[in-house]
Simulated assay, not measured.
Amino acid sequence: MARILVTGGTGHLGRLVVPRLVRTGADVRVVSRSPHAEGDGARYVVADWATGEGLAQAVGDAEVVVHLAGDQLHNEPMATALVRAVRDAGAEPHLVNISVVGAEKVPVRSGFDRRALGYMESKLAQERVLEESGIPWSNLRASQFHELVLIAARALAKLPVVPTPSGWRAQPIAADEVAARLVELALGDPQGRVPDVAGPEVLTFRGMVRDYLDAVGSRRPTMPVRVPGAASRAYAAGGNLAPDRAVGKQTWGEFLAEHVEHR
């Protein structure tokens, strides 16, 4: 029985990965910032990313660590804390990391770039921490999740006129399809950087928002907005796309039909 620790296991992607791992028969533990009710087949261990308290114990005898924790501000420091915990524990697990397609192709050259699109830069920094750690690892880059595009579309749709970044494109993929690939990696040997996974179609962000508005029966107009900066230009140029890795099955339209109730 594989002993697998999941960081970020209570987040959006983690909630899809953890039950998949449990169904394989693995001994699954999840890092949590506070005590968590168990009952999903996983065990929860408390650790503090800021101080590192409990992380080495959490890593413990784990054979695999699926690292999903992080955000735009904390991807690099959390990866650093994880590597330190692994070393403190004297362990050498297989680290399975989730990253983002085009992490090295979206430059951040200003404070505005960093505020608006700094996630790409932070994921690249996270990758480098893990790659340079000397710990066996696998790194999967995925394109934008359907679910995250939906969150953005819902937020924008509250405005009388819906602004959409001019020229931006995306290749959205179902988060559950990414979760399935992460589980495959967790049950296999370390592979370094593996082929990216991306959705089955390249769409404009404006078109996706319009699809959402149509799905909910909204007639609110969209308005293209030019977003300044090198990072935005990279998005418009397709730096966040992987058309040769269109391995996802669910389309944006299918996702909307499944998750959005027409009013």
Rank of each mutant, 00 (worst) to 15 (best):
Asn75Val: 01
Gly39Arg: 08
Gly102Arg: 02
Arg87Leu: 09
Glu76Gly: 01
Val106Asn: 01
Gln57Ala: 15
Gln72Glu: 10
Gly39Cys: 05
Leu55Ser: 02
Arg109Asn: 10
Ile98His: 03
Glu104Val: 13
Gly41Phe: 12
Val45Ala: 02
Thr80Ser: 14
Glu127Met: 05
Val31Ser: 08
Val129Cys: 11
Asp61Val: 02
His74Ala: 08
Gly41Cys: 08
Ala37Phe: 04
Asn97Val: 15
Leu117Met: 14
Asn75Trp: 10
Arg33Cys: 07
Asp40Asn: 12
Leu68Glu: 00
Ala69Met: 05
Leu130Ala: 06
Leu68Val: 00
Phe112Ala: 13
His94Glu: 03
Gly90Arg: 06
Lys123Ala: 10
Met120Leu: 15
Val66Ile: 01
Gly102Asn: 04
Asp113Met: 03
Ala58Cys: 09
Val30His: 05
Val129Arg: 13
Asn97Ala: 11
Val22Ser: 10
Gly70Met: 02
Val66Trp: 00
Ala103His: 07
Trp49Lys: 06
Glu53Thr: 11
His67Thr: 05
Ser34Ile: 06
Val100Phe: 12
Ser99Trp: 01
Ala85Cys: 09
Arg33Thr: 15
Asp48Ala: 06
Lys123Met: 09
Met78Tyr: 11
Val108Cys: 15
Ile98Leu: 14
Ala47Cys: 04
His36Asp: 05
Ser99Leu: 03
Gly118Asp: 12
Leu82Trp: 03
Arg114Leu: 13
Ala79Thr: 05
Leu68Tyr: 00
Val86Pro: 05
Val86Tyr: 04
Arg23Gln: 15
Gly54Thr: 12
Val108Arg: 10
Ala116Arg: 01
Val64Leu: 00
Glu121Asn: 06
Thr80His: 13
Arg20Asp: 04
Gly54Met: 09
Leu117Arg: 00
Asp48Trp: 10
Gln57Met: 10
His36Leu: 15
Ala26Val: 09
Gly25Lys: 13
Gly60Ala: 14
Leu130Met: 12
Asp88Leu: 03
Val86Arg: 01
Arg87Tyr: 07
His67Lys: 03
Leu130Tyr: 09
Arg20Phe: 01
Gly39Lys: 08
Gly54Ile: 09
Ala56Leu: 04
Glu63Met: 07
Ala81Lys: 11
Asp40Cys: 05
Asp71Val: 00
Glu104Arg: 15
Gly52Asn: 09
Ala103Leu: 05
Ala37Cys: 04
Asp27Thr: 11
Glu127Asp: 14
Glu92Val: 09
Met120Cys: 06
Leu124Lys: 12
Ala125Thr: 03
Ser122Cys: 02
Arg115Lys: 12
Arg33Leu: 08
Val66Asn: 02
Val66Leu: 08
Val46Met: 07
Ala81Glu: 02
Ala58Trp: 00
Phe112Thr: 11
Val106Gln: 02
Glu121Pro: 02
Ala42Gly: 07
Ala103Tyr: 11
Ala116Gln: 07
His94Thr: 06
